[in-house]
Every structure is written in C-alpha cells, then in structure tokens.
Computed example of a mutant assay.
Amino acid sequence: MSDKHLINNLSTLVALRNSELEKLQAEQAAKQMTAERYRKNLARLHDLAVNSGASGNLPIALAANCGNYKQAVLAMADSHRLDLTMHEADMAVSQQALTRAYVKREVLGQVLEKNQKALAGKVAVQERKVHDDLATQLWLRGQK
C-alpha cells in the first residue's frame, strides 16, 4: 500500500472517529440535561411536600387528604431518585465509552501524524536528491 493511500485511509478513519466522538459527546450532554431535570424535579417535589402545610390542625378528612397527598409526593420523589440513580449509572457507562472513543481517536491521530511526517521526510529527501542531481549536472556542464 502506498504511503499516500495509507494516509488517506488513516485520515478517513480519524474523521470517522471524530464523528463518533461528537455523537457520543452530544448524547452525554443530553443525558446531563436529563439528569439536571431529574434534580430540579426532585427539588420541586420536596418543596411540594414541605409546603403543603401541617396536617395536624385540619379537620380529620382534610388531614387524611393532606397526609395522602404528602405520601404520594414523597413516593413520587423516591421513584424519581431511583430513576436519577439509574440514569447516573447509565451516564457513567456512556462517559467510559466517550473516553474510549477519545483515546481511539487520539491514537489514530498520532499514527496519522507520524505517517504524514514520514512521507514529508521522504518527499524532502527526494526533492533534495533531484536538486543535487540538477546542481551536479550544472556543475559538470560548467566544467566542459
């Protein structure tokens, strides 16, 4: 495989890794926004439970209703906490995938850079050889 062909293939692979990395970053950002929504909902549910007032001063039917309301809000908050915990675990797995994709992209980028430098070195050597040959020919012509 020629050096130029290898560099083209590596460039394509780096571009693919970049697009994969961008996709994973976008997914991670969306998951972070979802986690933030969970946290805000939990804060609102906590405020609803706390601000519903004391049920001890109310008539028995209203106190029972207020108690049931608080229990329902607290149960919903517990459900949200569980969902948030599961979502954060999913985010951790996604972060690991993002890190692996970043490492793959960096490794390929370094290989591409190394091959580009090697090809540039070969081209420079060939150019110097051509210039040296031309200079030698000119010098030899001048000697005649």
Rank of each mutant, 00 (worst) to 15 (best):
M33Y: 14
R81Q: 14
D90K: 14
L82I: 08
I60T: 13
A64V: 08
V130D: 10
D132Q: 10
K117D: 11
V93K: 13
Y69H: 00
N9S: 02
M33T: 14
E106D: 14
A120Y: 04
L140N: 11
M76G: 04
R39M: 06
K70S: 00
E88C: 01
K40S: 07
L10R: 01
S52E: 01
L6A: 02
G121C: 15
M76C: 04
H80T: 08
Q32T: 03
E27M: 03
Q116Y: 07
Q71R: 11
R39P: 04
A43R: 09
A54D: 14
K23Q: 07
A64S: 14
E20K: 04
V93L: 12
Y38M: 02
L140C: 06
L42D: 00
Q25V: 05
R128L: 07
Q71V: 07
P59W: 11
L84A: 05
A120S: 14
G121P: 00
Q137G: 03
M91L: 13
P59A: 15
A30R: 04
E36T: 13
D78E: 13
L42V: 01
E127T: 12
A15P: 05
L16D: 00
G56L: 13
L134S: 06
R128H: 05
L24R: 05
P59D: 15
L13G: 04
P59R: 14
K31F: 12
R37I: 09
H46K: 10
S94Q: 15
R44D: 02
C66M: 15
K114V: 13
I60G: 02
N51W: 06
N9L: 00
N65K: 15
Q95A: 13
N65I: 15
I60Q: 10
K104L: 02
P59C: 11
L42S: 01
Q95W: 05
A30E: 10
A26T: 09
R44V: 08
H131D: 08
N57P: 09
H131S: 04
E127Q: 11
I60P: 02
K4D: 11
C66T: 15
A30C: 04
L13F: 02
A72W: 09
S79T: 06
A15V: 01
K4Q: 11
A35I: 15
E106L: 09
K70V: 06
H80M: 12
V130W: 08
S11D: 03
E113A: 14
R17G: 00
A29C: 06
Q71S: 12
A29L: 12
M76F: 03
V14S: 02
Y69A: 05
R128M: 06
L16T: 02
R141D: 13
R141W: 13
